[in-house]
Design a protein around this nucleic acid. Sequence first.
RNA 1: GGCAUCGUGGCCGAGUGGCUAGGCACAGCUCUGCAAAAGCUUGUACAGCGGUUCGAAUCCGCUCGAUGCCUCCA
Length: 493
Amino acid sequence: MQLFKQQTLKISNSLSGKKDVFKPIKEGYVGMYVCGPTVYSNVHLGNCRTFMSFDMIFRYLKHLGYKVRYVRNITDAGHLENDAEDGEDKIAKKAKLEQLEPMEVVQRYTVDFHETLQQFNFLSPSIEPTATGHIIEQIEIIKEILKKGFAYVANGSVYFDVIKFNETNDYGKLSGRKLEDMIANTRALAAQDEKKSPQDFALWKKAEPQHIMRWPSPWGDGFPGWHLECTAMSTKYLGDTFDIHGGGMDLKFPHHECEIAQAEASTGHSPVNYWMHANMLTLNGKKMSKSTDNNIYPNEIFSGENSILSKPFSPSVVRFFMLQAHYTSILDLSDDALLASEKGFYRLMEGLKNLETLAAGDTTDFDIPSWEQRCYDAMNDDFNTPILISHLFEAVKHINLIKEGKENITTKDKASLQNILHTFIFDVLGLEDQQESSGNSKTLSGVVELLIQLRNNARANKDFATSDKIRDELLELGVQLKDGKDGTTFTVN
RNA sequence: GGCAUCGUGGCCGAGUGGCUAGGCACAGCUCUGCAAAAGCUUGUACAGCGGUUCGAAUCCGCUCGAUGCCUCCA
């Protein structure tokens, strides 16, 4: 069952800039941390893509037999609007706006987040820590960084000293930036007096009297900086050095760069072996963003209530659509692309159903073991789901040929094929056959079967007016009849 | 302005120094009472211009274009 001993997994590592062979720190175990959402509004589809990519990665690692501890945080405090003096906490700002308690805001959007992810069939992470639950840990790290001399206190706030850090370490190694360039290109911001250098970032911010969310600290009442929470929570649950750290591409700089700096400053060594970045989902060719309103919410897609798409699309179709692109590529959402994915997805599900009904033969005209290995090869090559899906369609093609009587499969191979397909489609890709789960299916299929019988009787009597009427009217209701070699089947759209 | 990524056939989207991606759409054929479904076949694409090479869409350079980051964002 320890497939990882047979398969060589390669991962695109943003830190090395290459595809590296994955070797966990402790054989058989993987520690993975992914930056979760800031719960100050509903998750939009762009957010979901990142979490979906890591859900797929989590699933595949588990499938390979690794014991994975997957930590995905909830940012419920400390996320500043900007680093300027008037920096305001996103949660607190929203709370004032809506006349709610900050924790009420957090609760509302955390629930929304979970509900949305559930619809997409995400697995729960092993631990889902919150920033506010780890204030003590964050203060401890700040103390440690101060002790090492890489931070300074200014007027009740604590800042990370980037220039000092860069003397002994490499600030910018993840994002490919040089500190000199950054300094040369810094825009002159007003009210930066507290910071020694504009590149310095807050570890702890002093809370102004009107600030609602505040905690006591050795430097006075305040709240932690955004970058720090991920350092605190990742190292608390995964150790000072862990295997995989993931997140959206847009967090690479400065967020992840700062995480590296904080960890190296406090512990003296690099916190993460493999940095993974999921690319953006775009809409109208532009990145989805809460602040620019260029976004679409999952529920708007499921319900069809939006101005972009011609019809509703189910969560599995959306999931399939996203998995047809590699997670490191930018993907653009469009009606045409979703329509194409929807048809493809139904074809895949249809193939799976057809497989169950195949009659077994004496031989198999389809090299299943080598095909299976190609499926693994695709996933081992940096989780290449588009290639995996193309292989799945290859299997569908064979299934249809067998159904047509043009190829054969033995009982044993049929079971094996069924097993492999189920594993990849449902366990690894996390897709769901939503027609199956749509309830009432027993009644419906009974009724349709009856109509099929009536239609076949009519056809036998050459009463094509009746048979076509049954066929066409069923189609209008969304039931498509399919005349095959061994009788008639149907699908519901 | 700086850093980075990308530019693939009608659309979406993989990939590789020389050999079929795949899905959707379109066309022809097979099957069918007719369709649909399914199967088969065809399309010969890799932004432009140079260079390296026996050979490049794949490596290098330049040009053009797009996007991301540089300020909050997955």
